[in-house]
Amino acid sequence: MPRSRPRSGPTMHDVAAAAGVSQATVSLVLNSASGSRFSAETRQRVQDAVEQLGYRTNAHAKTLRDGVSGIIGFLGDAVATTPFAGKIIEGAQERAWEDGLLLLTMNTGGDKALERASLDSMLSYKVAGVVYAAMYHRRLDVPDALHGVPSVVLNSQDRDHKLPSVAPDEELGGYTATRHLLDAGHRRVAMINIESLESELPAAVGRFNGYTRALTEAGLPVKPSLVRFGTGNELDGFNHAMDLLTAEHPPTAIFCANDRTAWGAYQAASELRLTVPGDVSIVGFDNQETLAPHLRPGLTTLELPFIEMGRRAVELLLQDAEPSAQVELMTCPLIERNSVTHPKEKP
Rank of each mutant, 00 (worst) to 15 (best):
N193V: 03
N193L: 00
E195Y: 14
S196E: 14
S196C: 08
L197F: 08
E198G: 04
S199R: 04
S199K: 03
E200K: 14
E200I: 09
E200N: 15
L201K: 11
L201S: 10
L201W: 08
L201H: 13
L201P: 00
P202K: 09
P202W: 12
P202S: 10
P202Q: 11
P202H: 13
P202I: 12
A203K: 12
A203I: 05
A204E: 03
A204Q: 03
V205Y: 11
V205N: 07
V205E: 05
V205I: 09
G206T: 05
G206K: 00
R207M: 09
R207S: 09
R207K: 07
R207Y: 12
R207E: 08
R207A: 09
F208K: 00
F208G: 00
N209F: 02
N209M: 07
N209P: 00
N209V: 04
G210W: 13
G210R: 10
G210K: 10
G210M: 07
G210P: 11
Y211W: 06
Y211F: 15
T212D: 02
T212H: 07
T212R: 15
T212A: 12
T212Y: 05
R213F: 05
R213S: 14
R213Q: 14
R213E: 12
R213H: 13
A214V: 02
A214L: 01
A214Q: 04
L215C: 05
L215P: 03
L215T: 06
L215S: 03
T216G: 06
T216A: 12
T216W: 02
T216D: 13
E217I: 06
E217Y: 11
E217W: 12
A218N: 04
G219I: 11
G219M: 06
G219C: 09
G219R: 10
L220R: 00
P221H: 05
P221V: 01
P221T: 06
V222Y: 08
V222C: 12
V222M: 00
V222R: 03
V222D: 04
K223H: 14
K223A: 15
K223F: 09
K223D: 15
P224M: 01
P224H: 12
P224F: 12
P224G: 01
S225Y: 04
S225C: 04
S225E: 15
S225D: 15
S225F: 08
L226V: 13
V227E: 10
V227D: 13
V227T: 14
V227H: 11
R228I: 00
R228L: 00
R228E: 01
F229L: 03
G230F: 07
G230M: 05
G230Y: 07
T231N: 15
T231V: 09
T231L: 02
G232P: 06
G232V: 08
G232D: 11
G232Q: 12
G232F: 14
